[in-house]
């Protein structure tokens, strides 16, 4: 691991087991990757390829069966490592009885921001995600896109050094999708490291510096987007299956 490395995974394997501890599936199989400071790294792959499991390993929500994972040179479960991470899950998972403002304030509190700093930061983020007008409405009444923007603001509230985005544009309309992409680029430009997963290859092409393509828990390709060929989609399909399968997988996702 060099000094610039933010995430380092060496030979990580995650085997899920049934009630009797019999192995059922290797969700991640001997995966190694390194994400460097300030880059936007994309994890691509069809459904079930191990993208979300890899993210949960990096977040410390799962422990690897084999291999070693470090984030900022620390165990992913170390409080000091978690203090530097912002996470946007695939679905928003907001507390339904809190307002948008309370939700962001809650996560600000978990990042140990003082009340005044948290309030100021919440105001800025609500303005950024364009939810100022509805900031005092409970989030259970929000559309999927609005909930997604609250979740994104919550992920950013602690000013993380590493932002992990699981399908960040899922559920967003084209305008919001473009705004998220612009935001990711701006954050990276300011020095934030971003790890994102997506099955929308266009998103990855637009924002990622480097990508890794996963299939059945294994890395099948890794490199800069430009190095993987003229069209990332063609490269992806060549690596993980034919076009019909991909379209069907996308339709079902």
């Amino acid at each position: 691991m060099n000094g610039d490395s933010v995430i380092s995974i060496e030979g990580a394997t995650k085997t899920f087991r049934d009630f009797w501890l019999r192995p059922t599936v290797n969700a991640v199989d001997g995966l190694s990757l390194e994400v460097r400071k300030g880059e936007v790294f994309g994890l691509l792959g069809p459904n079930g390829s191990g993208k979300s499991t890899t993210i949960k390993l990096i977040l410390g929500l799962l422990a690897p069966t084999l291999g070693r994972i470090s984030v900022f040179g620390l165990s992913p479960r170390a409080v000091a490592a978690r203090a530097k991470i912002g996470y946007l899950p695939e679905l928003s998972y907001l507390h339904p009885f809190l307002t948008a403002r309370e939700t962001i304030m809650y996560y600000a509190g978990l990042c140990n921001l003082s009340r005044s700093v948290a309030a100021e930061r919440t105001r800025e983020l609500l303005k950024m995600v364009k939810l100022e007008d509805v900031s005092n409405r409970v989030v259970s009444g929000f559309s999927k896109g609005m909930a997604r923007r609250v979740a994104l603001a919550s992920a950013l509230v602690g000013k993380p050094e590493l932002l992990i985005l699981d399908e960040p544009t899922s559920g967003l309309d084209p305008v919001s999708t473009k705004e998220v992409k612009t935001l990711v680029k701006a954050l990276a430009k300011n020095g934030m490291t971003v790890l994102m997963t997506s099955h929308l290859l266009a998103d990855a092409e637009d924002v990622c510096d480097r990508v890794m393509i996963l299939d059945r828990g294994k890395s099948v390709a890794e490199g800069r987007v430009a190095e993987l060929g003229e069209s990332l989609e063609e490269f992806f399909l060549a690596k993980v299956g034919n076009a019909d399968e991909f379209v069907l997988a996308d339709f079902l996702a």
Binding site: L59, L61, Y87, L110, G158
Partner: peptide, 8 residues
């Protein structure tokens, strides 16, 4: 999980 990934 959103609480567990915070520095708490």
């Amino acid at each position: 999980q959103l609480t567990l990934v915070r520095p708490v």
